[in-house]
């Protein structure tokens, strides 16, 4: 496992105590010498209960602030409560868009 993905897992683990976490490095989908810049993330945590999506994603961004300030460029994100995860039968579509080459600078 690569360095940033290890840190992402550990930071999210501490902040959100997820019961399920999927993290896929999608940096290869993007142009340029990108390394660990684009990730696809599914987080299932009780901490999201009662929060609207915008506040759930903010919790994730807050936990990853240091990464976002050091080259993490984009996250495709699904944030679910355990109940929602169960209702989705443990699987959610989370398709990242293709790169269009518009930005190299965060």
């Amino acid at each position: 496992m690569t360095e940033r993905s290890t840190r992402i897992r550990s930071r999210l683990g501490e902040a959100l105590a997820p019961i399920h976490l999927e993290l896929v490095d999608e940096s290869h989908m993007h142009s340029g010498p990108n390394q660990e810049t684009h990730f696809n993330l599914v987080v299932v945590s009780e901490a999201f209960a009662g929060l609207p999506l915008v506040r759930r994603q903010r919790r994730v961004y807050d936990a990853l602030a240091a990464e976002l300030n050091s080259g993490l460029h984009a996250l495709t994100m699904r944030t679910l409560t355990p109940a929602e995860w169960q209702a989705a039968s443990g699987s959610v579509a989370n398709v990242s868009p293709p790169c269009m080459g518009g930005s190299k600078a965060g």
Partner: peptide
């Protein structure tokens, strides 16, 4: 048509990556 002329960078050349949904 995504880009008409201009100075837009070329699209990703990564093989196997589909164009915009």
């Amino acid at each position: 048509l995504p880009v008409v002329g201009g100075s837009a960078p070329p699209p990703s050349s990564t093989p196997g990556v589909a164009s915009a949904r």
